[in-house]
Amino acid sequence: MRPFSYAVPATLAEAVSALAASEPGTKILAGGTTLYDLMKLDIEAPPAVVDVHRLAELAAIDTTRPDEFSFGAGARMADVADDPVVRRDFPVLAESLAKAASQQLRNMATVGGNLLQRTRCGYFRGGPAFPCNKREPGSGCSAIGGLDRGHALFGAGDACVATYPGDWAVALLAFDAEIDVIGPRGVRTVAVGDLHVEPGDDPQREHTLAGDELIVRIRVPVTPSGRGSTYHKIRDRESYAFALVSVAAGVAFDDRGVVEDCRIALGGVATRPWRSPAAEAVLIGERLTEATARRAGEQAFAGARPGTGNAFKIELGIRAVGDALRIAGERAGR
């Protein structure tokens, strides 16, 4: 690890000014589970970090409003996952967090920091033996033509096929969440759908926040389909693993049992959290059956572009979508 300077601002305002005054490359340290990890691997080498992990202003969880849940960016993953109201009224959110990492890591990692979690691509994390455009621009992408079982079916390009590894952002994307961001130019709101970017020809750029901006909170509109929701995650082992395929799904029915709202987003298969409006459209106005769920799944994976070792995730993903919709539908109650 390279030496770095370390600052712990006592207030949010101080954090913003510290970031504004810091030298280029300064990073925000929250739970540390991504940044400090990558610093240990010599992949991140910020000259300075600003530690916000104990800023009380970022810690609030507010589930009292009928129209919107709000999560301070500094809230711990475990706390949101265990929140009884979230578990009852918005299970997809709680499950996306509870099925990520381990309880120890969820006690450390924040829901804001988790959005910006960096890829687990082994070639990226593996260091200088492997060319990697994300780590070393212009060096190439080892995953293309390499071991790509865990790599993306969607949103990939010639420069990078690394998967966005998170779960929480997938759930948030499915339910139109927004984040409030603070920086020296003030506060702005960014839709989660506008937060992450595909690698294009600049895989180093993963999101649309500026280096001096800080996520303050995450806001999620409360909807009936949030109550009828699930986060379904298929992994290589039963727990403590990243997704092969994951599905955030939500369903709401009208009086006749016809689907009037449907949410489908995918994790583990794309370079960014991946929502499928086309798959959602398959179900809206239809009854939720095994057949319609299958059609939605097929639609969700219609544009998949597999590499050499990940094509199985198309059929797996179609089935996972079906299962997720079934679970969500049961919760929505027909």
Partner: peptide, 13 residues
């Protein structure tokens, strides 16, 4: 290539 306890998945509880 998968020389970590994350990528070499031994069984968990």
């Amino acid at each position: 290539a998968n020389a970590t306890l994350e990528e070499y998945p031994i069984p968990v509880n």
